[in-house]
């Protein structure tokens, strides 16, 4: 049995009854709410087993407790294989680290930039700036788009907040949960997979202490996810760390890159092999001679 104390007076106890059958007991004030559920079952089922009267008081604590336990209770939608982070939850629930009470505002530098972006669009259509502004907010907010970021962008662009939520949930590049300092995205789409991305992914995960895709390392330095094609197929396999592509990877070069990042350095982006960008690794087969200069083949009077 494990027990964790979560926010103000709520306690959660976890019993492991069988291999995967777990029972959670939440304790709040004088109420004991015990609920049994399978690891990986629906939050709504858990919810159903909870007494109606206790729901509202326990709402936020319960959510938090589930996260604190590190167990997977799917909040939304079936999660196939390894989900991309932004698809994990399509419904916001208040948590201590992500709720509308946490204030967010652009810093002066970003505000100037935001105004410049907004000025690209007709005044009545400034809602068109929602994606760049969310991106700006995400960058300022340690790489993830909290509910406060979305609300702030909505306020800035005079949009109903729901219209911003729609955009932020539609695009997987907006992380709606906190991420580590370095956001590692490993491409596992077909071309990369054929070039050995499975090895790269496994190397990355084991090198970072055996985490799973979608998880963050304990020191908070790395978050790893699997992503679909990033458009660098000619340099497969590849991974993305923050804004930079690291291509032509081998397990060794992958480890090197990760080590560099964990030391706080930033290795040179691009192909990690000897070749230039995506030129033929076996040497050039075309354009081997000197290209002719201007006027070279023209009649003399034009030379």
């Amino acid at each position: 049995m494990t027990s964790k104390s979560v926010q103000n007076g709520f306690h959660i106890f976890q019993f492991v009854n069988a291999e995967s059958l777990q029972s959670y007991r939440l304790q709040a004030d004088h109420n004991d709410i015990e609920t049994t559920c399978l690891h990986g079952s629906w939050l709504s089922d858990v919810w159903k087993n909870t007494a109606t009267t206790a729901r509202s008081t326990l709402s936020s604590a319960f959510n938090y407790a589930i996260q604190a336990l590190g167990c997977t209770i799917h909040c939304e939608g079936l999660i196939y294989g390894s989900p991309s982070r932004s698809l994990m939850t399509l419904q916001h629930r208040d948590t201590p680290y992500n709720n509308p009470q946490i204030e967010f505002k652009f810093n002066p530098e970003n505000l100037t930039r935001a105004k410049e972006i907004i000025s690209h669009y007709p005044t009545q259509y400034k809602k068109a700036a929602v994606i760049p502004l969310l991106d700006l907010g995400q960058r300022q907010n340690k790489g993830w788009t909290s509910i406060s970021v979305m609300n702030y962008v909505a306020e800035l662009l005079e949009m109903p907040p729901m219209r911003v939520y729609e955009v932020a949930t539609f695009y997987t590049m907006f992380n709606r949960e906190p991420i580590g300092t370095n956001f590692v995205q490993v491409c596992t789409t077909t071309p990369c997979m054929l070039r050995g991305s499975t090895d790269i992914l496994n190397t990355t995960l084991s090198h970072l202490g055996g985490i799973k895709p979608g998880e963050t390392t304990k020191d908070g330095k790395f978050t790893v996810i699997e992503v679909e094609c990033q458009g660098a197929c000619s340099n497969a396999p590849m991974l993305v760390v923050n804004d930079d592509f690291y291509e032509d990877l081998t397990p060794e070069s992958t480890k090197k890159i990760l080590d560099a990042f964990s030391r706080g350095e930033k290795p040179k982006p691009g192909p990690q092999s000897s070749r230039q960008t995506s030129e033929n690794s076996a040497g050039l087969t075309a354009l081997t001679s000197k290209p002719y200069g201007p006027g070279e083949h023209c009649s003399p009077e034009f030379q």
Binding site: S59, E76, G77, L87, L90, Q91, H92, R93, D94, P100, I147, P160, P161, M162, R163, Y165, E166, T169, F170
Partner: peptide, 19 residues
């Protein structure tokens, strides 16, 4: 204007995103 669609593709759902 609180109701909308969150997510996309097969995971699209109708809701308010916030509770």
């Amino acid at each position: 204007e609180d109701l909308g669609t969150t997510g996309r593709g097969n995971d699209l759902q109708i809701g308010m995103y916030v509770e």
